[in-house]
C-alpha cells in the first residue's frame, strides 16, 4: 500500500501523471484511488492530487501518513509536507512559480524557506523542466517526474507496466516516444542524485 501526494500548480500535467500511475497499478491487478482538488483558476492555482495504491477506501490521504511527495513546484512541495510521514520521501522539481500576492507586493520567492522545509525529510531534487526542455518537449515534465519517483524505488509497480501505460496514454507515436525517454531521463537523474 502506497500513498503519494502530487503537488504543484495548474498546467503542470499533474493529473495526467496521476492517471498514468493509477492505471499502471490497475494493470498489475492492484487497486488505485485518486482525488484531485483544483480551485477556481484554470491556470496558476494550487493543485494537489492524492493517489493511493492498495486496499484503501478513502482517497484523501490523512495528515502525516503519505509515503512520498512528488512535488512539481518548490513552495507547493514544501506546503504539502504536512501530509508526509516522518520517514517519507520527497522528490522535488526545482521549478518556482511565483504566486500573485508576492508579485503584487514586488516581493521575492521564498526559495530558502521552502528548501529548508524540504531538507527536514529524505529528499531528491530533479531539474525536470530542464530535462524536458533538453528532450525538445517541455510538456513531458510530468513523465520526467514519474521516472524520478520510480527511480527512488518507492513504487511497487514494474517499469514495464509504467512504460506500457505511458505508451498507451499518448495517441501520437512521436509524443509517446518522447514521454518514454522523459521517464528514462527521470530515472537516470534521480540515480545520479543518489550517487551524489
Amino acid at each position: 500500500m502506497t500513498s503519494i501526494v502530487l503537488a504543484g500548480v495548474g498546467g503542470q500535467g499533474i493529473i495526467t501523471l496521476g492517471k498514468i500511475l493509477g492505471e499502471a497499478a490497475i494493470l498489475e491487478g492492484k487497486k488505485s484511488l485518486m482525488t484531485e482538488i483544483h480551485g477556481m483558476a484554470q491556470r496558476g492555482g494550487r493543485i494537489s492530487v492524492d493517489l493511493r495504491i492498495g486496499d484503501y477506501q478513502s482517497a484523501i490521504i490523512p495528515i502525516g501518513s503519505a509515503d512520498a511527495i512528488l512535488g512539481f513546484e518548490l513552495m507547493e512541495t514544501a506546503r504539502n509536507t504536512v501530509k508526509l510521514k516522518k520517514d517519507g520521501i520527497i522528490v522535488a522539481n526545482k521549478r518556482m512559480i511565483h504566486p500573485m500576492p508576492l508579485i503584487m507586493k514586488a516581493q521575492e520567492y521564498p526559495e530558502r524557506e521552502s528548501e529548508e522545509i524540504i531538507s527536514r525529510y529524505n529528499h531528491y531534487y530533479v531539474n525536470a523542466d530542464e530535462i524536458a526542455m533538453s528532450l525538445g518537449e517541455k510538456r513531458s515534465v510530468n513523465m520526467v517526474m514519474l521516472g524520478a519517483l520510480f527511480g527512488v524505488g518507492i513504487l511497487e509497480i514494474s517499469e514495464e507496466s509504467l512504460k506500457k501505460t505511458i505508451s498507451a496514454s499518448f495517441r501520437n507515436p512521436r509524443v509517446s516516444e518522447i514521454n518514454i525517454k522523459a521517464f528514462e531521463a527521470g530515472v537516470a537523474a534521480v540515480n545520479q542524485e543518489k550517487v551524489l
Binding site: 496558476g44 492555482g45 502525516g64 513552495m75 514544501a78 504536512v82 504566486p99 500576492p101 521552502s114
Partner: peptide
C-alpha cells in the same frame, strides 16, 4: 494523536491566467 506541522508559506490564491 494527529501531529500537525505548522508551515508558514505565502498563500497561492486563484488568479487570472497569463
Amino acid at each position: 494523536k494527529t501531529e500537525v506541522v505548522n508551515i508558514d508559506l505565502p498563500s497561492r490564491p486563484p488568479e487570472f491566467c497569463p
